Simulated scan of single mutants.
Amino acid sequence: MAWRCSGIGWPQGTRLAVLRWEGGRVSPLAVGRELGFRAEGERRCVGARGNPCPVGAAVSGRVTGPRCPDCARLDRAHSVAADTLADDPRTYRVYLAWFGPGMAKVGITAEERGPARLLEQGAVVFCWLGRGPLMAARRAEEVIGTALGIPERVPYAEKRAVRAELPGTAGERSAEVVELHRRARALDGWPETLEPLECAPVDHMDVFGLAGLPRATCVVTGLVDGGAVAGTLLAAVGPDLHLRTADAEIVVLDTRLMSGWSLVGAGPGAGLSVPTTALGTVSPGSHQEGLF
């Protein structure tokens, strides 16, 4: 029986990620669980805004956004990130997220989503900066990013490269976020309609299963017809699953690569028979020179 994956999810009120499947089924992603699947046929566009792709277009097995050009445009047209919802009446929060030494970012998320956005990005530590209307939150994001020299995005390749070498204590991991929060609140240009929030760092080390995580040897770059991925789950971090295969290889699978495929179960011995690349290395702070 083939299932079609809808990606990873972090249900509110839980500390356990799940894989979502078309039809509403979910599979809990508990550390230590054996996972295995094999892709079948051709990858198809997942549609946009809850609607199926009208033509069921084929899409590349190597992209994390499994949509055809038309569906991608439709999805982007209703995106806060694309600044197409300036009149959104919801309350938004500005946050600081930390992924490793020298790797911090500033961002915004709808308050009703709670910490889901931070879990989805794989933020090891985060704290709230303020809350208020969308445009005030967006303005604060721009002011903070420019003044403090921190980006709005951190590439996943950089996040993955440091996960096995994170500081051992929560205090060490939160130190940069605490200092950035202090500096951000001292800036001129803070929007009047944005309510400031006290610094209260949240640590996701245990939630993700990062303690004692061995360094990955490779990263899956795409699925192929007949290709298998199987192993023991070591950690679930944002969209990424860290697995130990039957050959003791440590592999990272971005679950966004699973969406749009028909998948069937595979035993633990199926191992890894999809394209991969070696995990790169990143020097702490290398993409963010001059932060402190």
Rank of each mutant, 00 (worst) to 15 (best):
G168F: 00
I144H: 01
G271Q: 04
R215V: 01
R215D: 01
P115Q: 07
P66N: 11
R73N: 08
D75G: 15
T169R: 13
F99M: 09
G50Y: 11
R163G: 02
R244M: 10
G13F: 03
A186F: 09
P201A: 10
G285D: 04
V63S: 12
I150C: 11
T232P: 00
Q121W: 07
A72F: 08
E22V: 13
A30R: 15
S259N: 03
L194G: 09
W3T: 11
G209P: 01
H204T: 04
E152Y: 05
R183D: 06
W10E: 02
S259I: 12
T255N: 04
L263T: 00
G265F: 10
T232K: 13
L118W: 12
V154P: 08
A170D: 14
W21C: 08
I150D: 06
V106Q: 08
F99S: 09
Q288T: 15
A230P: 03
W10R: 05
L279C: 02
R38F: 00
S262G: 12
A86E: 12
R4V: 12
E112F: 13
R44E: 12
P201N: 09
G7F: 07
A110Q: 06
A216F: 00
I250H: 01
T64W: 03
P284G: 12
A81R: 15
E22A: 14
G130S: 02
R62I: 00
G280L: 07
V106T: 13
Y95W: 09
V106L: 03
S283C: 06
R93D: 11
W21E: 08
A200I: 09
D206G: 11
Y92L: 05
P191D: 07
A211W: 05
V177P: 03
P155K: 14
R43E: 09
K105V: 02
M135W: 09
G50P: 07
E22C: 09
E195K: 14
P167K: 09
L148A: 09
F37L: 15
T84L: 14
A157N: 11
H204P: 03
R131F: 05
A200C: 12
E195N: 07
C53V: 04
A58Y: 05
N51P: 00
L210P: 02
D88C: 09
L129I: 06
A137H: 03
R173V: 04
L129A: 09
R160S: 00
L35G: 04
G7L: 10
G107P: 02
G280R: 11
T245D: 03
H78M: 10
E112S: 15
A248R: 14
M135E: 15
L243I: 06
V229C: 12
G36N: 10
G227T: 02
E22Y: 11
V59T: 04
A235W: 01
S259G: 12
L29S: 05
E40N: 09
A216D: 00
D70Q: 13
L85A: 08
L180W: 04
G61F: 04
M1A: 15
A266D: 10
T232C: 13
W3I: 10
R138N: 10
E179N: 11
G41L: 05
R131H: 04
Y92A: 04
V264L: 07
R173H: 05
E152D: 15
R183Q: 11
I150R: 10
R160Y: 02
A97L: 08
T84D: 12
A140Y: 01
P28S: 06
C68R: 08
S286G: 05
S259Q: 15
